[in-house]
Each structure stands twice: as C-alpha cells, then as structure tokens.
Write a protein that binds this DNA or RNA. Sequence first.
DNA 1: CGCGTCCTTGACACACGTCAAAGAGAGTGG
DNA 2: CCACTCTCTTTGACGTGTGTCAAGGACGCG
Lengths: 246, 246
Amino acid sequence: MIQEDALERARALLIRRYSALTPLENADHALFTRLGPPEPVARGREIAIEGMPIRSPRFLVSGWACRFRLLGDGRRKIVSFLLPGDAIGICGRARPLALCSAAALTECLLLNGSPAFDDIWDDAQAHPNMVEALRLAGALDEKLLLDHIVRLGRQTALERMSHLLLELHWRLSQVGLANDWAFRLPLTQELLADGTGLSVVHVNRTLQQLRKAKLIDWRQQTCIILDPEGLRGLGEFAPPRLSEWV
Amino acid sequence: MIQEDALERARALLIRRYSALTPLENADHALFTRLGPPEPVARGREIAIEGMPIRSPRFLVSGWACRFRLLGDGRRKIVSFLLPGDAIGICGRARPLALCSAAALTECLLLNGSPAFDDIWDDAQAHPNMVEALRLAGALDEKLLLDHIVRLGRQTALERMSHLLLELHWRLSQVGLANDWAFRLPLTQELLADGTGLSVVHVNRTLQQLRKAKLIDWRQQTCIILDPEGLRGLGEFAPPRLSEWV
DNA sequence: CGCGTCCTTGACACACGTCAAAGAGAGTGG
DNA sequence: CCACTCTCTTTGACGTGTGTCAAGGACGCG
C-alpha cells in the first residue's frame, strides 16, 4: 500500500535525522513506529496559530513549511523554515501557546508524535539517547535562530541569500534530500523575501547576481550550488559542530 | 556585611523573577539560598565564548550583559541583552558548546547556579514549580528571539528602537528595575546599534526623532517612556501573556 | 589642562524598496 | 490545440532609508 510505503520512508527519515544528532538504539528506533496517523496538509494551510494552544507534538516528514509572524499592516516575517524531519511543538508535556504561526509552503505530511512522546516523558530513563537527541535538536534550532539574527542584522542581501542557501542545503543533506550540491527548493521569491527580510524585487536581483557569478544555478525549483567555497566566502555559514556538541 | 546584603537582594530578585513565571513554594525559594559564590565581572569582560564548552549554569543578578556574534570582518551583532534575573547556560545537565559569546556591558555580578541545579535535576519531582519556571523562562527567551527576528527583518529603524525600548522596559519592570516608565539604560549608542542592526549614526538620529516626538526622554543613562501608547503604536511590542502560558 | 569616550551634525553615497508593466509557464476549459 | 487566467519571475525607473565618512562638541577623568 502506498500509504504504508510513505510511512516507512518517513520513519527512515526521522531515524536518520535524529541519529545524526546522537547515536540511537533499537529502543529509540521503536519509538518511531509508534507515531500517530499521518496528517496531510495542503499548501498554504496553517499548521499552528500564534497565541493558540499547541495541539500536539508533530513531525514534519515531507514537504516544506515555515514559522512566521505578521505585523499589523500585513508585513510578514518568516522566522524559520521547517524541513522534513523537523519537529513542531515539542516542549515536554506542556502545551503552551504557540509563539508564532506556522503554515505549509508545499503539500506537507505530518505525523502525530504524541504516542512516542508519551513514552519518552513517562520514562525518560528508558530513552536517554532519544532525550539527548531531542535536546540537541532544540539546540540546533536555537543555533539557526541566532544565525538568522546575525544574517538580518549585519549581512547584506548577497550575504544573506548565500547564508540561507547554505543553511538549507546543509539541513536537507542531513536528511538525505540533497544530491551532492543540488537540492529541491520549492520556494517562491516572495517566500525567500520574507525569509531574508528583503523585498521580492531585490531577492530576484540578488539571485541573478549569484547566478551571474556562477555561484549557484536555480531553475524549476532546483537549486545547485556551483561554487560552495565562493558561497561560503560570502555567507560565512558554518554548519553546527554536531560531533562536538557532546 | 555589604557582600551579604548584595546576596540577599540578589536572591529576592531571582525569586521575584521566577515567581512571576509560575508560583513558587518554599522548597523552591530554598534553592536560591544554595547558589555558588558570587562572581563579579568587569565591564567588557567575556562571560562565555562561542564554540567553547559552557562552564556552569549562572544567574546574572546585577548589571547588564549581552550575547553576541562576530563576523569575519569585525561586524558585531548583539543577539540578546541579558538583564538581572536572566540565566546563562541552562541546558539540563549537559554542557554543550556555547552558541555565541557573551560579555558584560557594565559591571556585573553572577551567581553560580550549579548547586541549585544539581538539586533540581537530581530530583525534578521535588521541584515541579521550579522546573516549570525554568521551562517558561526558556520559552520567554525564545519569544524574545522571535521578536528580534521580526524587528530586524521587517521593521524600520524607528519601529525597531521603539520595540526594543518597550521590551527592555517590560523585562526590567518584571524584576523591579523600572520606576513606572523610567528605567536605567546603561547602553552606549554603539551597543544599541549592534542590538538593532543599525549604524551608530542612525541610532543617534532615531533616538532624536523619538525625543522630538515626545515619545521618550533619555539623559544620563536614564530612559523615560513619555508616551507608552505612542511608542507601542510604532513598535507593536506585545508583552508575553504569562498568565496564559499554562 | 589634556585626553578619551561618547554624542551630535552635515554632506554624500548607495543598497534596497517601491511602483508599474511586461514576460514566462503551468493549468484550465472550451 | 488554442485562448485565457493565474501565479511567478523579470526589468526599468525612480525614491528613500540607512550607511559612511569626517569633523566637531560635550563630558568625565586623571
């Protein structure tokens, strides 16, 4: 059954993602078989609403989403992009109010994490590695937020774009969604603008600049980083030192 | 003894800060008597260094500090300001690598939190409220980071400054360091620039604009918010809904 | 008094935003 | 298979918010 097949791939992806953070055991792998029913979300649909209680912990297993905030006059800022393998609404047993909204940018598939998390919080001793992996995932999220702040506060358009592309590539490669330096980037320039704090027009020009400089190639939702070193020189993106994060 | 006196005030401040997040019991209050020796830090001195292991959990009990990142060419971005009552390096028992550097902006006093945290993590059941307060403090930190991202990505200089001033005022008022709408703001304009992602010159002009509009007054390190409503209209700062954060 | 740090100003440059309109593709329906 | 529409990208012209440079104050401090 295609449904089963998708679920199997989702589990493999989650295991890959969290194993990269800290080695997991069979007991941990088993957690991923205990995920709730898959929930497909259509593009544009909201996944969370700022100020409303978080529903339940979920894993994004396919598609792209984002967390965002709106200002009174309609200006929008994308706070972070959510990629396959990312968790949504993990905060122990608590169900606090969402700090920002989240929405699907493409067709998405979510898995309810409640059963697994009930197991984990019921007996944290039984899953020390999984608890550690979740802690590291949280630290990684924070690192990305800090990167984002530096990007917005002190980098030029060209640098921001380079940095963001390198970040996205690194994250996708962690879950096997990058072929070498090529990856699917299903974002419109408007979304990139809201992500980088630029205007659409300027995003367009910045991308053209990167293309003309032969640093990247981007056609039909596929981005290829042609010159990783060159791009790094601009963006100063440093992947997290996972192996040393204890 | 003056030392003892300062310690007593520090404890009261911490209790006030964390009680505001969730009601604490006597057992929790007792934790704050178990804090390590006070560590004074001179202005400009580093408190943490990006990429180095975090030393131990500490509480900032007086003075201002900040977390920051540096870019290759010396550009600096202040990621967040640390105010009295804020914790530094809390992440369970783990001692991961610091995600960014931190430095004292004024003379600071830190208290080592290790003894108290050992108690807490040894037996989390014994201090449910304190654990909850720490979780909320973490959520609050994240909220502030998200605010910061929106500020940098989608607000003008005038809006950013208004937002930041309202945030600082709210945080200081939580620990009793604001007299109504007046508070001590021991920052140079250069630091405000690194905090808002602007240049020093533009910070200067922005502040003058706020002053001319009779929204604020700022002299000798004392800031007075003359027109809270006006400032809020610009900055759109919304204090966290603590009472509803469950 | 002289020095350092910080604030303030003015003139100027430019990165980026805004506005408007014209392509380019992907679907859709006839 | 051709309009037709929609969304998204691309371009040009132009405006402006913010940065940069450079110099001069103001103030505290030794």
